[in-house]
Simulated assay, not measured.
Amino acid sequence: MNGPIDTNSWQYRQINARAPGLSYLANALIDLVEEGYPVVAGTADLQYSNGLVRFAQRFPERFTQFGISEQNMVSAAAGMASTGAMPFVATFASFLALLCCEQIRTDVAYSALPVRLIGHHAGISLGFYGTSHHATEDLAIMRSIADLTVVAPADGPQLAAAVKASVNHAQPIYFRIGRGQEPVVYEDDVDFQFGKAIVHGEGSDLTIIACGSMVHPSREAYRALRAAGKSVGLIDMHTIKPLDTKAVLSAAAHSRFILTIEEHNILGGLGGAVAEILAEAGSPARLIRHGIRDEYSLIAPPTHLYKHYRLDAAGIEATVLEALG
């Protein structure tokens, strides 16, 4: 189902103009092919939305356009992996995690095949597309599947680092990413290790644990709070599964409060994973989960939704101040 790429098309030109973060995925895959890895890629009619059109233009023989058949794409990726290929397949997170859950569980994870699943436009980043296209349950679903690693990079450079690190990772992986417009948090060639959180700072009052698109606004709030004299820490918990237990318990040992921030339902995602660790360890630190509070997300531009759900820097800062009384 592949066809020629029109590099003069509006969609192709808009990748650079409107979603520069998407280039990191395709460029990382191109680098891996040039380094000799058996990488193949595919998407379900969204090569412009996820930037894989770049990969398709460079290596058309390694790219498959599956059309609007997401479940078939995942099963086909499992078949490719069984032959020794290293498949990366991408579509909207709401379709990949919800619609393709059975195929991910049975064809990929149960079969222990190293498929890399890219769920892009996660959370509420699709805005006006509506609740059916918002992915606020995917972390809860994916982390409940055995032998499936779940990663939520903060920005393009961290995504590229995670993609390149995945060549030495035996398990299948679900990558949860945004829409390519996320502000950059890290420099290129950032150090990335699966299951190893990045600690930006420690605090005795409260530690923020954030993932994915919420790392940047959390860092802005963290900086403002520290400038105001609050003893606040910040952890980028990019790997939701396996979670960095040591980082969580270390923060809980030094902070009165733990505040998880996620562009996701507060049930079952990052907040749920942290709650499990704290409960099992008998930690005295109080946990506050911040995100979508068990409801279907509203329809509006993403910027308006982030403000409404207090998932922007100002909202996160206010949430911390309320927790501290």
Rank of each mutant, 00 (worst) to 15 (best):
A154D: 01
Y186D: 02
A160F: 12
G127H: 00
N2M: 12
P183F: 00
V108A: 04
A109P: 09
E182Y: 04
Y296E: 14
E187K: 14
D312T: 05
T239N: 06
V108M: 04
A281V: 08
P114W: 07
Q47L: 14
G282P: 12
D205K: 11
V320M: 09
A281I: 12
A17K: 13
E102Q: 11
G127R: 03
F175M: 12
G271M: 09
V320E: 06
Q158M: 14
D236T: 02
R256L: 08
L311M: 13
I30S: 10
R176N: 08
I15E: 00
S218A: 15
T260V: 13
L267R: 13
A251G: 03
S213H: 06
A281L: 02
D236F: 07
H216V: 10
Q47W: 10
S49V: 04
V248Y: 08
T207S: 09
N8D: 13
S111R: 15
A162C: 05
G201Y: 05
A275L: 01
W10H: 10
R13D: 04
T43V: 05
T303R: 14
G282S: 12
A81F: 06
R310L: 06
F59Y: 10
M1H: 15
Y222R: 06
S255W: 13
E280S: 13
P301A: 11
L267P: 00
R18I: 00
L287V: 11
L234G: 02
H169K: 07
P20S: 06
D312C: 06
S69W: 03
R105I: 00
T239E: 05
L234F: 11
R18C: 04
D244S: 05
R54H: 12
I104E: 03
D138P: 09
A314Y: 00
S125A: 01
D312N: 12
A85N: 15
A162T: 11
E317S: 15
A273C: 04
G3T: 14
G119L: 07
L148F: 06
L159N: 07
P183I: 03
I104W: 00
M214Y: 13
A252I: 09
V167N: 07
I104S: 02
